[in-house]
């Protein structure tokens, strides 16, 4: 059991570390494309325009953007990869609690995952 815990701590540690480097590499590629195509554009973020789209619409739009080599969409991909690191961390924890047969913590991890999934549902008006 102790052995198991050490392996898990290493896996989680590596995931977090390499995750950030992958995110930075993808982001910088996107950023350079974005800057080279929009360098002289004027920016104005003074007013917030609220969107109300489901995550699936957001993702579809990004996928289309990436296929057209749109810089902003590639940056967005990097941001999504960043958001995925803690998610993968949760899945790794879940697996390790299952391996340890720690039923209570399998349940606790599942509750956290369910709350996060709920945020997809509650996040926009239907």
């Amino acid at each position: 059991m102790k052995m198991n815990e050490t392996i898990m701590q290493n896996a989680v540690g590596n995931l977090l570390k390499y995750g950030v480097w992958i995110v930075l590499s993808v982001g910088i590629v996107g950023g350079l494309i974005f800057l080279s195509t929009h360098a002289d554009a004027t920016v104005d973020y003074r007013d917030f325009v609220e969107n109300d789209r489901s995550i699936f619409e957001v993702l579809r739009e990004i996928a289309v953007g990436i296929s057209e080599m749109d810089g902003a969409s590639i940056i967005y991909l990097a941001i999504i990869l960043l958001f995925l690191t803690p998610f993968v961390r949760l899945i790794l924890s879940l697996i390790s609690f299952i391996l340890e047969k720690d039923l209570m913590y399998v349940l606790i991890t599942l509750i956290v995952l369910i709350i996060i999934c709920c945020s997809v549902y509650f996040g926009y008006a239907h």
Partner: peptide, 16 residues
């Protein structure tokens, strides 16, 4: 993301 808070042009320089 769904509400449009995430603007790539702001987030990337901030992240780096």
């Amino acid at each position: 993301m769904q509400k449009g808070y995430i603007v790539p042009a702001i987030c990337l320089p901030v992240l780096i």
